[in-house]
Amino acid sequence: MNKILILATLTLMLSTQVSFADANEAKYKSTPALGSIFDGPYLFDQSSNQQTRQAYWICANALLTTALDKGQLHRPSGCGQLPEPTLNPKAKNIAANTFTHVSKIVALSDVHGQFDVLITLLKNQKIIDEYNNWAYGTGHMVMTGDMFDRGHQVNEVLWFMYKLDKQASDAGGKLHLLMGNHEQMVMRGDLRYVNERYHTAERLLERSYDELYDKTSEIGQWLRSKHTIVKINDSLFLHGGISGEWVDRKLTLDKANQIYRANIDKSKAEIKSDDLLNFLFLGEGPTWFRGYFEDDYQESEIDRILAYFDVKHIVVGHTSQTRVLGLFHNKVLAVDSSIKNGKSGELLLITPNGDQDTLTRGLYDGSRVTL
């Protein structure tokens, strides 16, 4: 009797374990908690003939493909409102990293996949029109990094910015898309903050998330052409901040931006083994530094950095605030307004006005307040 009871118990335990395993596998395959997944497009270099390229789409958890049509992507029918981008043959061109005589500048940061909040903010502030097209004329727009991770509409944000990049240039303006620490993390395979939505694309395309944006992908090539730091008029723009160590190392924008592009795909171990790369990509480097927001940070250190770059302002994201904030008599301008929370956000407007720039907070409802 005891043997029969033991055998029955073991059978029940084994059956339960198999059921749990099946349930977990089914959950991974169908992602029922997220419902039907719509994602894409993903476009990769597959042959020397660009017109034979295939775009990949996730439509209701199914993988579909469409052919590239003279540089235009068309989503499959019944595939929701996924982006239908027109490819930009100049998307991978490397721009200058210093600009002067720019008539107006708008800056924001840390969107983290919150496409709807981004669109509402830009539309209410008249940076884009009602059809989500560039409406800022010859002005320059700076996104100081961190489009990736956390939120569920990263791909929508990326393709929107890809479109805006061309439209701004065509209008005589400029989009500056700067690399943040989360862009760097994704490209070197640090995927701790990737939204669950993208597991479906990984599985169906048989690529890890970082490989969806690798050197063979349209978006990946575009991102790898971008700077990490730019200087516009008398303002310096970057993700985290410039520490005094940068000045001590006598680094230049040209050299640093070239190093970032050349080493963006290296592993963390490779980066840490090189002293300069370890500084630039990690620790107190420009995409991670948060020193300006520490209580004991000295304004004299800011003055030293401003003098080194010959600028009046340093514009940064990375460290979350509830609003666009000016520190040290507006020498540091913080533009991470917590868009990543998916509720609202702000942007910074800079208008040259003689020796004194006009600094304005652009609020979520479309109103503006002098900083």
Rank of each mutant, 00 (worst) to 15 (best):
L238C: 03
L238G: 00
S267I: 09
H239S: 03
S217D: 11
D234I: 00
W222P: 06
L223I: 15
R249I: 01
L276H: 03
D248T: 10
T216Y: 07
G244Q: 09
G241C: 11
I219R: 07
D274R: 08
K231C: 09
Q258N: 15
I271E: 05
E245W: 03
W246Q: 03
D248G: 14
G241R: 10
R224C: 14
K272Y: 04
N263T: 00
N263E: 08
L236C: 02
I232E: 08
W246A: 01
K268C: 04
S217R: 11
E245P: 03
W246N: 00
D214L: 03
W222M: 06
H227G: 12
I264H: 00
K268G: 13
S225T: 14
D254L: 11
D234G: 00
H239C: 03
A269C: 08
S225C: 12
D248M: 02
I219N: 04
D254W: 01
L238F: 05
S273L: 09
K215Q: 15
A262K: 15
A262Y: 06
R261T: 07
W246I: 07
G244S: 11
N263Q: 09
R261S: 06
I232D: 07
G241N: 07
V230Q: 07
N263C: 03
I232S: 03
D234F: 00
L251P: 05
K266H: 11
Q221Y: 07
S267M: 11
K250P: 00
K268D: 14
E270H: 01
K255D: 08
S217V: 05
G220Y: 04
I219M: 11
D214Y: 04
T216M: 03
L251F: 10
E270I: 01
L238Q: 08
K255S: 15
S243D: 12
S273K: 15
E270T: 11
Q258M: 13
N233G: 02
T228I: 13
L238R: 01
K255G: 10
D275T: 15
N233K: 06
D248I: 00
G220R: 05
R224D: 15
L238H: 03
Q258L: 14
R249E: 00
L251E: 06
L276R: 05
V247S: 01
G240V: 00
K268P: 00
A256S: 15
F237G: 07
V230M: 05
I259C: 10
N233Y: 08
T216S: 15
V247I: 15
H239L: 02
I229Q: 04
A262G: 06
I264L: 12
L253V: 03
K266L: 14
K231D: 08
L223G: 09
Q221M: 13
Q221T: 10
K215M: 11
D265E: 14
G240C: 07
L253A: 05
N263F: 02
S225F: 12
A269G: 08
D274M: 06
